[in-house]
Write a protein that binds this DNA or RNA. Structure first.
Lengths: 202, 202
DNA sequence: CTTTTTACTGAACATTGTGTTGATTAACTT
DNA sequence: AAGTTAATCAACACAATGTTCAGTAAAAAG
């Protein structure tokens, strides 16, 4: 069932997001005000409050939408664990997350970059971490997550944060590698470890 | 030459920090105001502005002091790279960073946890990343950092963010492992990779 | 095309926190 | 004990917030 949303609502909401991403590339998120947002959008300040409880709520909704999309993408690749071999020709599912970040580059640059959001990085990491845990539980038929050995959990936390951190570095370098290369790169490092990785002189 | 600082100055500054860490364990940093800070500290609001330009400056100074201390600790261990073997009996230098985090647990819980600081995680990662780069330059007699192969740089970014992420997870788990165990854990995962790590059942 | 619904506007309002200032008091240093 | 300086108190203008309500414009429904 498709909810029909008033075109005016859609227009102002997307406009506000566009303006936000513009403003946020000049100054940290925390210094952006509702007044500034609506002024540059040419909207009445009151209009903002018809849609959001406050600026915090505005960010939250924006983030949640992206997080949901990201979640839908990564939950497909069920068992990242099984494959112990690093691949040279990555399955599409492993490339997709990087493609998504690239598609939403304006968002990620702002929210994941300096002066960005306090929690997005953590939230992404947590999402990926959960994915690892789910895969582990499926493989070892472990009912509840608390039963997973501590060090195994640390491994997942390690990998998840390395994953997000690598993406952040990728953004910082203005996406100098392709999504495919990123998928290969990550699989190589994380599976082989720093001691066994040797890159051909690219 | 040791600068003698008026005891009153020292008292109010440390008091403000204490109060901050108290308040911040109840609510996100961004919702803490100067008024709230000084009220609960029993200080006049004007006094705050005798010491800091604003709340942002206050956070900045606090962070920078910790970052400097952390920097002093990790710059000692020159070449994390050389050791390709994971160790079971870690050198003191590799344990020290974890000890430091543990000593400053109140600070790190607040600034690195949910509702914490926007940039500290990134700044720590950057600090460690630089350490890797320095070590690499020393080893390969590479004069400037830009000449380091891209994928090598990605490896460093990967490791640095994994390092910080592991610490964050450690904090989240209320420091369930000892600093020594953390040092061992990190060296094992990062050197062997997820494919070759096998933890004894504990 | 007309009617009805509803999103946006404009302006006002009280409230809260900010950053600064100047005179006074209290505490520390020498 | 004298001199210095940090903290206090109260007041100030200022800016952003969140809310309200009557009026207008644009969409959806018939």
């Amino acid at each position: 069932m498709i909810e029909k949303i008033d075109r005016r609502i859609l227009r102002t909401r997307t406009l506000l997001r566009e303006v936000l991403l513009d403003l946020a590339s000049e100054k940290p998120l925390k210094n952006i005000t509702v007044k500034e947002l609506t002024d540059t959008a040419g909207l009445n300040r009151g209009t903002f409050y018809l849609h959001y409880q406050g600026i915090q709520d505005f960010y939250e909704q924006f983030k949640n939408e992206i997080l949901e999309q990201f979640h839908r993408i990564i939950k497909k690749l069920g068992h990242k664990l099984g494959n112990r071999e690093p691949f040279k020709d990555p399955p599409a599912g492993y490339v997709r997350p990087f493609e998504f970040v690239f598609e939403q580059k304006r968002f990620f640059k702002v929210f994941l970059g300096p002066g960005g959001d306090t929690d997005l990085s953590r939230q992404l990491t947590e999402l990926i971490n959960q994915q690892f845990i789910n895969a582990y539980r499926a493989e070892y038929r472990q009912t509840n997550a608390a039963d997973i050995p501590a060090k195994q959990q640390y491994l997942f936390a390690y990998l998840a944060s390395a994953y997000v951190g690598t993406i952040q570095f990728w953004i910082q370098r203005e996406f100098d590698l392709s999504p495919i290369d990123m998928a290969i790169l990550f699989s190589q490092i994380s599976r082989l470890g720093s001691a066994h990785v040797h890159f051909p002189f690219n």
